[in-house]
Design a protein around this nucleic acid. Structure first.
Lengths: 151, 151
DNA sequence: GTATGTGCAAAACCTTTGCTATAAA
DNA sequence: TTTATAGCAAAGGTTTTGCACATAC
């Protein structure tokens, strides 16, 4: 599950980037995180390791790590408004958002992925799909129960 | 295809909002648009009809129209960074983004929707799904051909 | 040694908010 | 007449950028 960072980080050089302390730090933070982190959250955790790191560097590093294929950027459903960063391939890109309480549930969906790709295949112009994500919005169990009991 | 706005706009009153010139304008702009519009784009088009309208009003109106169920807010894949607004039910919530040229293809996917909902159903906590959207990233035909011809 | 990357502060960007005047009901 | 809404300008939050210094190669 935990992939050695040093195996990883040289992807930076393969993409023509340099390996720096700050980039190691940011990558470590993301690789060791439990769930997706906002840029601000990455910054806070990175400062615990390297108090001198700046928010600008975190943003620039996130871009670079993304270009090197070391992390992915997600947007959660509903708001979508803030980007979140995770190691490549760790999380499912399927989210359910409860419109009432804001709870987010991650789930897997091979059926969904296949279905989407199958229908997409009818559009010849979408030649080479790489990544699928889906967002579902609705109400979670406890919020449904609350609503039911009110009426 | 074009639904009479006057049939539509009274949904505002049903939700306890007033009907104003600005709200008519914004709703008209969105109903008559070809594709999803950013808030800024709505503002530009609205100014052609009512030069006095302010951007703040556009934002507030977008919120109100959304609450009244007259328009929907989407986020396109890849960037996701800016919200786009469309009439309810007009567009598919499935998008393909070409990572190279940025082209976006909208498509339908009943298979995808059903697959996603089927897998989501295994999570009892996601009791009442309402809306599904999916984003696919990859490369479009012409960009794939370019890449192939280079190598 | 040279090009890239960092830190800082300032700017850019999108969106929201406070306030007074205006208009819908 | 009463209350919601519009317009303006200012503030808010996130992300980007310019520039001088530092660091990786």
């Amino acid at each position: 599950m935990t992939i050695s960072k040093d195996e990883n980080i040289h992807a930076l050089q393969d993409s023509g980037f340099r390996i720096t302390r700050q980039r190691r730090t940011v990558l470590d933070v993301i690789n060791q995180s439990e769930g997706p982190l906002t840029a601000e959250a990455v910054y806070q955790k990175a400062k615990e390791i390297n108090p001198k790191i700046s928010l600008a560097t975190v943003y620039r590093t996130l871009t670079v790590l993304r270009q090197a294929g070391l992390i992915e950027q997600h947007f959660l459903p509903g708001g979508h408004e803030r980007s979140h960063f995770e190691p490549v391939g760790v999380s499912q890109h399927f989210h359910f958002l409860c419109l009432q309480c804001g709870k987010i549930i991650e789930f897997e969906s091979n059926e969904g992925t296949q279905g989407v790709l199958q229908d997409l295949a009818r559009h010849e112009d979408a030649a080479q799909p790489i990544r699928v994500c889906a967002c579902v919005e609705g109400y979670c169990l406890s919020c449904v129960q609350q609503r039911t009991s009110k009426s």
